[in-house]
Design a protein around this nucleic acid. Sequence first.
DNA 1: ACCCCGATCGTA
DNA 2: ACGATCGGGGTT
Length: 168
Amino acid sequence: MQRLKRDFFERSTLQVAQELLGKIIIFGKHKLIINETEAYIGRNDPACHASRGITKRTEVMFGPGGFSYVYFIYGMYHCLNFVTEVEGTPAAVLIRGAKLIGEEEINLNGPGKLCRFLDITKDRHNKIDIVTSKTFFTADAGLTLPFKKTPRIGIKVATDKLWRFIAS
DNA sequence: ACCCCGATCGTA
DNA sequence: ACGATCGGGGTT
């Protein structure tokens, strides 16, 4: 198991989003395999929070890759992203689905469900450097999963982009 | 201070 | 197909 370093995240967001499939998230005592992701890329992607400029919420996306971006949505749910690209290029990969390893193999399909299960909140888990954290990080277990590309879910713009990647 | 909308989910 | 539920961000 090789921990993912800064240079893994500071690359093309589409590349990172695809390669994150099959990678491992270590979150405290939990281990999960990522099986669904979406890419949100910069100022010209109207679905990307960062396309409306830098705010308190989105500032982490403008920083270096390898940080968590956790936001609150619909008054009830949190969503987990990993920031990609180098500092100054705001982009991130939304973790839409993952499967627990070891313990009961629950499929956490949906970004809200994933965060609810792991009790991830923006107050505690936004802007964490997952390249250096000892309790929240990602790793390569040598697994590559075949996947399909589809439009992103739950957005009303840029639905022509096939930027959702789901293990198949 | 006010208003509209949202990278969701469970139920119908 | 729809409602729950409230923070974020833009506007006044």
